[in-house]
Design a protein around this nucleic acid. Structure first.
Length: 614
DNA sequence: AGCACGCCGACT
DNA sequence: GTCGGCGTGCTC
């Protein structure tokens, strides 16, 4: 008798044993998909092992073997297993994150599996390349891609967004003469391209996060551009980070890994410091802009105003720049007009009914919009609570800056850009933009004004400095002349490192603080989120779990740190609580965590685990 | 996750 | 007596 060990794409561990019927024995192979009866339904399972013994009674039979050739080779099976162990999900869930939708849904494919495994003699090599304007970085990428092609090996190039993927393709194709393939989830021809890559018809794959799983033959090189970008982290279960998966995969397949960045992540930098990876810093060959700081607090005092959008100094510089027909960028990382709307009479603050978060007023459409769940309502002119007509809108967004500018500079042409409204003309005097502007190429401003950056710095998030610094660094690319930063914390190391034109000042200080506090990259954080419709139940369940994990933390694979309502604590009508664990060994921590979560069940409560949350 | 099973209240 | 809402537990 022959049995197949099968895993499924559900949050259940497995593997599950099934009888292989006689007529399927010749077709069963490790790595193929099969239809299996599971509880009452038939679902897709992935064969991860074949044995002649089993301890389970009353086995069911495999219904059908789908693939002639395995869709998962040895490397991919190993990678998905490692991913499941690190990110605390089932092996089947990990496999499903690595496969295109068509295959997950059972689509049959006719495809030759070329499967030329790499010779595995090369030592895996990881390099972090940092440069401020990206040009030098790309020269290195192109050289390495050609090198890899010459060795008859494949390359995977990862970019943070679709626009960058298409631009990357334009940079790569002219200098090589081999077909490339674009792979990302929701690509209309995802499966078609996947098959093409697997058959060796494209040796270069360019894509986003999920392209790290591309079925290339003989992987020689992975390039991950803008490696600090948080889009490489999946915000659904399993919460994998493409950089971590790239490390796993290049290690399994003995390929080279290049991490590129404008301002790198502290995770990667720490690996450089620990001599675990190599480092290549490319000095900027363009002029470093002059950085000027304006202390808005002191100006608020002297002008006796509560909020200052454009300081006198910034106004003067804009005036001078416009006078010499220069182009100005005003950067404010907030969409809309006001951060919140409140009633002056009864002090009611208008909040999202589903998320309990302040609604943002959008002047152009006269609506209130929740930036978390996209709830929209018409902006009321009278207070829904006390019927007074004293609704006041405070805080600033790009629309506020725009209206302030048109008041002070009535003759200038102003253009706003945010994630919902892209750059469509370069013909304006003043651009007002959110962080989407940092993705644009070929822009060169004569003056950049940075407004409201304190909001980014004052987040309740230990990474807020790192994120702010990355944002400021990416703005450096957009000018060689002058940047004015308005802040009430002008002495913050984020700004001072830029003023002194020495980025390492920031990194050194931030690493020192992280080490002192036992934060990443020195320790790993594991975030456990609980959600449910009833606030009290979620709270109770979280406290129970916290107590339980507290009593077992003697095992020392993890340490419980905190228990509190998540931020936001209410999202899409569900309440959220979270537990934080700290660990030095993620795999061990997840192994025991899986055991504890298995017999932790509260009705109506969903528990998810996020390893290395961002 | 998703589905059946079982318990309990409401209504023919 | 029987229908259906939801809480609970299991999946080879």
């Amino acid at each position: 008798m022959l049995y197949a060990k099968v895993v499924v794409g559900l949050p259940v561990e497995g593997p599950f044993d099934y009888i292989v019927p006689a007529d399927l024995i010749s077709r069963i192979k490790i790595g193929v998909r099969a239809w299996v009866p599971f509880r009452t339904k038939s679902i897709i399972g992935y064969v991860v092992g074949i044995t002649s013994t089993t301890k389970i009674k009353n086995l069911k039979k495999i219904l059908e073997v789908i693939d002639e050739q395995p869709v998962l080779n040895k490397s991919m099976l190993r990678l998905s297993k490692e991913l499941a162990e690190y990110y605390c999900c089932s092996w089947g869930e990990a496999i499903e994150t690595a496969l295109p939708e068509g295959l997950r849904k059972g689509k049959k494919i006719v495809s030759i599996n070329v499967n030329t495994h790499s010779d595995k003699k090369d030592n895996p090599d990881v390099i972090l390349v940092q440069d401020l304007d990206g040009k030098e970085r790309w020269n290195i990428y192109l050289r390495e891609i050609k090198d890899t092609l010459n060795k008859n090996k494949s390359t995977i190039v990862l970019l943070p967004d679709l626009n960058s993927v298409l631009k990357a393709q334009d940079k790569i194709t002219p200098s090589i003469n081999t077909p490339t393939s674009i792979l990302y989830r929701k690509q209309p021809k995802e499966l078609e391209e996947w098959i093409k890559v697997r058959e060796g018809k494209a040796n270069i794959v360019i894509g986003m996060r999920s392209a790290i799983f591309s079925p290339v033959n003989n992987l020689g090189l992975v390039i991950m551009d803008e490696e600090q970008d948080s889009v490489y982290k999946q915000d659904q279960v399993p919460h994998y980070h493409a950089r971590e998966v790239a490390f796993m995969r290049t290690n399994i397949e003995k390929a080279k890994l290049i991490l590129g960045a404008t301002s790198c992540s502290l995770e990667s930098l720490q690996l450089v410091k620990a001599n675990r990876i190599k480092y290549d810093f490319v000095a900027r060959n363009r002029d470093f802009p002059e950085i000027k700081l304006v202390d808005v607090k002191s100006e608020q005092r002297s002008r006796k105003k509560r909020h200052i959008i454009l300081s006198k100094y910034l106004q003067g510089s804009i005036y001078d720049t416009l006078n010499s027909s220069g182009k100005v960028l005003l950067f404010i990382n907030r969409r809309g007009f006001a951060t919140f709307a409140s009633c002056r009479n009864c002090a009611l603050v208008l909040k999202c009914p589903r998320c309990n978060i302040n609604l943002v007023y959008h002047f152009k459409d006269n609506i209130l919009n929740c930036h978390y769940c996209n709830f929209k309502m018409e902006a009321p002119s009278i207070c829904p609570n006390c019927n007074s007509n004293y609704i006041r809108y405070t805080g600033a967004g790009i629309e506020t800056v725009e209206s302030e500018l048109s008041r002070i500079f009535p003759k200038s042409r102003i253009n706003t850009i945010d994630s919902k409204k892209h750059l469509n003309t370069k013909d304006a005097d003043i651009f007002v933009a959110t962080s989407v502007i940092t993705k644009e190429e070929g822009l060169n401003f004569d003056l950049i004004g940075i407004i409201g950056i304190d909001n980014s710095l004052n987040r309740i998030d230990f990474r807020s400095s790192e994120k702010t610094f990355a944002l400021l660094s990416s703005l450096l690319r957009l000018t060689e002349k002058k940047i004015i930063i308005q802040s009430s914390l002008p002495n913050h190391i984020c700004f001072q490192a830029l003023v002194k034109k020495d980025l390492s000042l920031f990194y050194e200080e931030e690493l020192r603080i992280r080490k002192q506090l036992n934060f990443p990259p020195f320790k790993h954080i594991i975030l456990i989120k609980l959600r449910g419709r009833q606030e009290e139940k979620v709270k109770q369940a979280s406290q129970d779990l916290f107590k339980k994990l507290n009593t077992v933390h003697k095992l020392k694979v993890f340490r419980t740190v905190s228990l509190n309502p998540a931020l936001p604590s209410k999202l899409r009508s569900k309440f959220y609580w979270q537990l934080l664990l700290v660990s030095s060994n993620v795999k061990k921590a997840c192994k025991s965590l899986k055991i504890y979560l298995k017999d932790f069940s509260h009705s109506g409560i969903i528990v998810t685990v996020d390893v290395d949350p961002l």
